[in-house]
């Protein structure tokens, strides 16, 4: 009985499964839309990154210089 219920549950899930296609493993971050990226990226980091990108006087050398 226990076995039957256990396996029936797995069977049911597999019927509606969202397991990735074996061939599609290269779909990486591109599968997430840019809006999703915005909504899930750590907000303080995002805000600062945006501010830095828009307003920083110099390029990445300034950022590396800033590492303590």
């Amino acid at each position: 009985m226990r076995r039957k219920a256990f396996l029936a549950n797995v069977q049911q899930i597999l019927r509606d499964s969202s397991l990735p296609d074996v061939q599609s493993h290269d779909s990486s971050l591109s599968s997430i839309s840019s809006f999703d990226m915005l909504s899930v990226t750590s907000p303080p980091l995002l805000l600062l990154l945006v501010l830095i990108l828009c307003k920083t006087k110099s390029n990445t050398s300034g950022i590396s210089h800033g590492l303590r």
């Binding site: 303080p44 980091l45 600062l48 501010l51 830095i52 828009c54 307003k55 920083t56 006087k57 110099s58 300034g62 950022i63 800033g66 590492l67 303590r68």
Partner: peptide, 21 residues
């Protein structure tokens, strides 16, 4: 706070007076 978490371990360049735009 709450941005101090970022400057506890690194510095940031201050924002430029004029934007890129």
């Amino acid at each position: 706070p709450p941005f101090n978490g970022w400057t506890d371990h690194r510095n940031f360049r201050a924002l430029a007076k004029k934007s890129f735009g």
